[in-house]
Design a protein around this nucleic acid. Structure first.
Lengths: 233, 233
DNA sequence: AAAATTAATATGTAGATACATATAATTGTC
DNA sequence: GACAATTATATGTATCTACATATTAATTTT
């Protein structure tokens, strides 16, 4: 009896990946063409194609038309990062979420902010400074600028009752998102808000979003000491 | 004349995405079944299927058999992060890469390290402390533990000439990788190595990898002040 | 009425075929 | 020999068909 199992493209992907792992296909090597692999595995080329597409996406191989498929010479660690709404982040840890609006003003942003949003600047924007709490303790302090041109509706929202974070993410989907992570020492002001010591090392998450070519918002989220970002496996 | 353009699945994806963006399909809403969408767009169901699969992967919609497709109620910011080999990171910025082995010993790891690698512990491992330089200045200081059981060959490698980072990533592909980012204040020792001040805020990247179920390595990379992690668009 | 069984249904997937497209390799031209 | 045009080839994609599978809904049984 011949084997009549139908190989799924994920199985093919894993078996090709295994060959990369065990050195059958070494870094820089060219892999057989999809058609030959299909014959080897006894499946259709479309199945191999789907498998290779995934391996290509995860940075294991590189594919070029006519050039074929090669094992990436310098593999990168490619990870997927999920950044949830702060409320969900707090609640999924079993803590009680709290929120506090600190300041809400309208003003032209500093040049650095305008640059981040890729706009000329000098245009009034909404600035919101707010604190997210976890079990009553400071969790994330966000300093946010929102484009009133792209998101005029936000004027009508009571940002003391609902965080701009939630309102925006639920009502203003974006097409592009830039993220930036770095560490800073807390200044006196920030330390006060986050109830920590001046100079404490804080992780900063900067997120800027656009819809089409229009800027939505740029946030600088200063996290309380001990905050960690984890990748999902 | 009827339109005879063949829609690619990416086009379908973008058009469905656009409908989510403009509110045609609001968060929580159920989308038409693939077959109906296919009819709307005048393409095959498989094309819609491929598009929806991608939207599902990027967190825009959720799909369940029989349950249909829905717009995610609480969208998460999902980003892809590339962490290259440190040498490549330095060189791609146009700087000159340098490397310096600080210490290489064999010892059982601390319980925290063993826990991270998900092993019982008490087993000798290779510990490597090394400094990566950019234009001669400290860039990343790595404190690494390597499993001698999983990677015995590393005993033969001259880690003064070649960083464990490069050797491992080129020779020991992994099947699982955990990443963790956080900020710490530099202690005296670290500050000395990174030529910065004690207490400076440093971004820490912890990476632990396995092949199959076997631990390969766990690194704590302490980055010099100013280091940033960016997501690729 | 609760539990177990069955049917209906939307997504998931494989396979075969045909054609599109990028690009490496070759050939032709100056 | 340098450059341009052509050809060959591997991947990319769409479509149709046929099933597989998970899950909800309906039905029957207890």
């Amino acid at each position: 009896m011949t084997e009549t199992v139908r190989l799924s493209w994920k199985t093919v992907r894993d078996r090709v990946h295994a060959r990369v792992l065990d050195g059958t296909y070494a870094p820089g090597d060219r892999l057989p063409r999809d058609e030959d692999l299909a014959e080897q595995f006894g499946c259709a080329r479309s199945t191999v194609q789907r498998a290779m597409q995934d391996l290509s996406l995860s940075g294991i191989v590189e594919r070029r038309r006519k050039g074929g498929t090669r094992v990436r010479r310098d593999p990168v660690t490619r990870a997927t990062l999920d950044i949830p709404i702060t409320r969900n982040e707090v609640e999924s840890r079993g803590a009680v979420y709290g929120y506090q609006l600190i300041e809400q003003t309208t003003a032209p942003p500093a040049p650095a902010i305008a640059a981040r949003l890729e706009i000329p600047g000098a245009e009034d924007m909404l600035r919101v400074r707010a604190l997210h709490l976890s079990d009553g303790r400071p969790f994330v302090f966000e300093d946010r600028w929102v484009s009133l041109r792209t998101v005029p509706e936000i004027r009508e929202i009571d940002l003391a009752a609902q965080s701009a974070n939630e309102w925006l993410v639920r009502n203003k989907p974006y097409t592009r998102c830039d993220l930036r992570f770095y560490a800073i020492n807390a200044d006196a002001d920030t330390a006060g808000i986050l109830e920590t010591d001046e100079g404490a090392a804080l992780m900063v998450i900067e997120r800027t979003t656009w819809i089409g070519g229009d800027p939505i918002t740029s946030v600088k989220a200063l996290t309380a000491p001990g905050y960690q970002i984890l990748t999902r496996s």
